[in-house]
Computed example of a mutant assay.
Amino acid sequence: MTKLRLGPIADDKPVRLTVELPAAVHRDLAEYGRLLARESGRSEIAPAKLIAPMLARFMEADRGFRKQREKAALCSGPSSDPS
């Protein structure tokens, strides 16, 4: 069996966000949830629980995003102004 890219789902305090997804994307999320649940020995993983970890993994893998975020952090970092 192929190992899925998404690992265990963290149980973190959520921030509510409402999104509309195309039906095909929802079906794929539901299928991914079924496969991940089977792989991890859980009974079920709801599609909504997959969205945040998938987005986080996508952003972690985006080199351009990481580079721009690091650049922005350097620009807004601690000020060298002694006042």
Rank of each mutant, 00 (worst) to 15 (best):
A73L: 11
D11H: 02
R69T: 10
A61I: 02
D11W: 00
Y32E: 12
F58K: 04
K67S: 11
P14L: 02
I51Y: 03
G77Q: 09
M59P: 00
S83F: 14
K49M: 13
V19L: 10
L6F: 03
L29H: 00
I9R: 00
A72W: 10
L21W: 10
R34C: 08
E70I: 05
C75K: 15
A56Q: 09
A10Y: 01
K13F: 09
I45A: 03
L29E: 02
A56T: 12
F58L: 06
Y32S: 09
K67P: 00
S79A: 10
E44H: 15
P82S: 05
K71D: 09
R16H: 05
L35F: 01
I45G: 02
M54V: 15
R5G: 08
G33A: 09
A24V: 11
S40N: 15
E31R: 15
G77A: 15
K3Y: 02
A56M: 06
A52S: 14
A10I: 02
G33S: 08
V19F: 01
G33K: 09
A10N: 04
S80M: 10
E70V: 06
A61E: 13
L36C: 06
E39N: 09
L29F: 02
Y32P: 05
A24W: 08
G64I: 07
E20C: 09
M54C: 13
D11L: 07
L6P: 00
S80T: 14
D62F: 04
P53C: 07
R34Q: 14
P22C: 08
I51H: 02
A52Y: 03
K49T: 09
V25Y: 07
L50I: 07
G7F: 01
S43G: 14
G33V: 11
S76P: 04
D81N: 14
R27W: 08
R5P: 03
P47A: 08
D81K: 11
D11S: 05
L35E: 11
K71R: 10
P53V: 03
A37M: 10
E60S: 10
I51N: 02
R69P: 00
F58G: 03
Y32V: 08
E39V: 08
L55I: 12
R27I: 12
S76R: 13
L50Y: 10
T2E: 07
P82T: 04
A61P: 00
A30H: 11
A10V: 01
A73S: 06
V19C: 03
M54Y: 05
E31F: 13
S79P: 08
A37T: 08
V15Q: 04
H26M: 14
A24G: 07
R5D: 05
